[in-house]
């Protein structure tokens, strides 16, 4: 089975987000970049499937600035076979990114296209669904369980208050959620092997989006709250404040 995993390089979730004074974007100073955590579930799934089947190929496709190559090497160290970097600096709208990824995937011999459910920088949750539409493929999002038998797939998706079971046939697009598996750490051997695996780099030009980015701001600092008191004695004052001041009871 041939699997493509779409992977994004994103600022680590522990990053202290600072916006540049002109509101143009994230201040890159001191930001540490990682493989988008949800994409690690996708990678792990692809690699396990290949290992279990004893055959197949896992291709990682990432669109981003040149440094993204580092993150692709990390995926190759986990066990992916080859990488494609679509070089494109700056941050981009999901529709444009999905268009470029779909163009890259179209025409390839692929059974499964895996994504994370969400990139933790833009928090869009859009690219997988859009790629599926562009390619005319079935798509299951926010997946925590995936079974494949022959060409038939069954996925368990996380939805409000429970799970939804969906069925479709391959080739298909799936976006992964925490719970699907425990991603591995690259082994030393894997890191060495990754250096010799193919990584193709190509410049891409994205289609103009239909939404313009105007600015980025830090959220307003929370208004200073107050301590209503200590222990059980403060309960009546808390309830009074919630009812009379805040009007939420």
């Amino acid at each position: 089975m041939n699997t493509i995993v779409c992977m994004k390089r994103v600022p680590d979730s522990a990053t202290r987000v600072r916006v540049t004074p002109d509101g143009a974007g994230l201040d890159p100073a001191g930001v540490k970049y990682v493989v988008n955590p949800y994409d690690e579930f996708a990678l792990e799934d692809a690699i396990r499937r290949k290992e279990e089947a004893g055959e197949g190929k896992v291709t990682v496709v990432a669109l981003g600035p040149p440094e993204t190559a580092e993150s692709i090497r990390q995926a190759l160290a986990m066990g992916a076979d080859e990488g494609v970097l679509l070089v494109c600096a700056g941050s981009h709208d999901a529709l444009s990114v999905a268009g470029a990824l779909a163009d890259e995937i179209r025409g390839r011999d692929v059974d499964l296209v895996l994504f994370g459910k969400q990139a933790i920088d833009d928090d869009n949750m859009q690219v997988p669904q859009m790629v599926a539409e562009f390619l005319g493929l079935p798509c299951a999002t926010v997946v925590v369980g995936l079974e494949i038998a022959g060409r038939d797939a069954t996925a368990r998706r996380e939805v409000e208050g429970g799970h939804e079971v969906v069925e479709f046939s391959l080739p298909a697009v799936v976006s992964t959620q925490k719970g699907l598996n425990e991603p591995r750490y690259p082994s030393l051997k894997g890191i060495m092997a990754a250096k010799r695996k193919p990584l193709e780099e190509r410049e891409v030009i994205l289609e103009a989006p239909t939404i313009e980015f105007l600015r980025l701001d830090e959220p307003p600092a929370p208004a200073a709250g107050r301590i209503v008191g200590e222990g059980v004695d403060a309960v009546p004052e808390l309830v009074r404040a919630l009812r009379d001041e805040a009007g939420v009871l």
Binding site: P11, S13, T15, V17, V19, L26, I120, D121, D122, D123, T210, I211, E212, F213, L214, R215, L216, D217, E218, P219
Partner: peptide
């Protein structure tokens, strides 16, 4: 149509403007 939406898990808010057409 101009919208604001959180990014980076709510650590920043983006302001975006749709070009003419459905937002």
């Amino acid at each position: 149509i101009v919208v604001r939406r959180p990014m980076y898990a709510g650590k920043a808010i983006a302001t975006l403007r749709f070009t003419p057409g459905p937002a």
